[in-house]
Each structure stands twice: as structure tokens, then as C-alpha cells.
Simulated assay, not measured.
Amino acid sequence: MAKPLPSPFDKAKVVAENRRARYDYFVEERFEAGIELMGTEVKALRTGEGSIAESYATVEDEQVYLINSSIPQYGNRGYADHEPRRRRRLLLKTREINKLNGAIHRQGLTLVPLSIYFNSRGRAKIELALARGKKVHDKRETIKERDWKREQGRIMRNRG
């Protein structure tokens, strides 16, 4: 029997989502982390811009960093500016960082960002997942399952 999913995080406004991650990886455990951002980055995210499609996270020197995420420059910026693809530090507790580091090194798992969102308090958060990569046959199985669910929905709609 599968273990129950943890309670969903408080997502008031989702800015960017990595939909490909659920296709490429088995999600084992999820974490919510804060992101260390500059002011223009927050403003760009509030307008709905940003991408985490090709990004990943690493643990370096007791810190977690988000790498290769793109937050474009804010249009009405003044002198303050940011680099769109810079490394961004993620804010996690030491115990969580140690747990992630152990899982990455011992079990060979990957840290994958699933979504960037604003919570109900207006703070930018990122949902990280400890994930195991899928093989080609696993991906085919996922496609078959998704198609069967879609077909079930059609059959039930046509019956009722």
C-alpha cells in the first residue's frame, strides 16, 4: 500500500511549475523552502514571469542552491538589477539540509524543484522534491496509465 501524501503546502499564487519533473522522476518526498531573492526578482515573479523547467538544486557547503532557474529582469527597474540565471540560495533548516544531503549522497536521489509560488502571507516559496529518476519503461508505463485514466473519463462521461 502506498504511503499517504503529506498535506499540501499553502499555495496562494503559483508562479512557475515544473510539469516535466513528475514525468521524468518518481517523487519520494517534498519540502517547502524559502528563496533568497533581490527586490527586482520578487517583482518579476509577482507579474507571473519565471521558469524552473530546466533547473535543479544542489547542496554545497551546508547550503542549498537553486541552479539554472530563470527569472527575467523586471521591466520597470531602476538602477537595481539582477542576473536572470544566477544561483539562488534556498532557505531550509539545518536538519532538513542534512537530510537532503544524506539522501543525495547515500541513496543517489536528485533534488528537483516542482513549483515556485507565493503563500498566503505573500512570501515566495519553492516546493522541492527528493526524486528518483525514471527509466524508459517507467515513462512508458506512466503514459499508458495517463491514457487509460483519460479513456475512463470519456467512458464515464458518455454513460451518464
Rank of each mutant, 00 (worst) to 15 (best):
F26E: 15
F118R: 01
H82M: 09
I116A: 01
R132C: 00
L111I: 15
F26R: 14
G153V: 00
K125F: 05
K149G: 02
R85C: 08
L66Y: 05
L130S: 08
K99T: 08
E17W: 00
L91D: 13
V112L: 05
R86I: 05
H105M: 11
K134A: 10
R88T: 03
R85Y: 07
E145S: 13
D24K: 05
I71P: 11
S51L: 06
E145Y: 03
E127V: 00
V136F: 10
L37G: 03
G50Y: 11
Q73T: 12
G50A: 08
G34W: 08
F118S: 02
T58F: 04
E151I: 10
I67V: 15
R30K: 13
F118G: 00
I126P: 09
R106Y: 11
F31N: 11
T40A: 04
Q73H: 10
T94Y: 08
I116N: 04
F31C: 14
G122I: 11
D81Q: 13
R123H: 06
A124M: 06
V59D: 06
G39F: 02
S120E: 09
Y56T: 06
I116T: 01
S70L: 15
E36S: 10
N68W: 02
I67F: 01
G78P: 05
T58I: 15
V112H: 07
S70V: 14
T142G: 01
G108C: 08
T58D: 06
I104H: 03
K144R: 14
A21V: 05
V27M: 12
E62R: 13
L91A: 10
A129C: 09
Y117L: 03
R22C: 04
S51C: 10
V14R: 03
K144Y: 09
A129F: 09
G133W: 04
I67C: 07
K93I: 07
E49V: 00
A53C: 02
N76R: 13
L130Q: 10
L37T: 03
W148R: 13
G133R: 15
R89D: 02
R132I: 00
V42H: 02
Y117Q: 03
V42M: 03
K99A: 12
R132S: 10
K135A: 12
K135R: 15
E96F: 10
R123K: 07
H105F: 10
R46V: 06
N76Q: 12
I67R: 13
E83Y: 15
I97Q: 08
H137W: 13
E28G: 01
G122L: 08
R146T: 05
Y79C: 02
L114A: 03
F31P: 04
R20Y: 04
L37Q: 03
H105W: 06
E36N: 06
A33W: 09
I97W: 12
R22T: 06
I52D: 00
K134M: 13
E32K: 12
G75N: 08
E36Y: 08
E28L: 13
W148N: 10
H137L: 12
I104G: 04
Y25K: 00
E62L: 06
S55K: 03
H105G: 01
E83G: 05
S70C: 11
L90V: 08
S69L: 12
Y56V: 01
K99R: 14
L100F: 11
E60V: 12
A16N: 01
R30H: 02
W148E: 10
T110I: 00
N68Q: 12
V59P: 01
V59S: 05
R87N: 14
M38S: 13
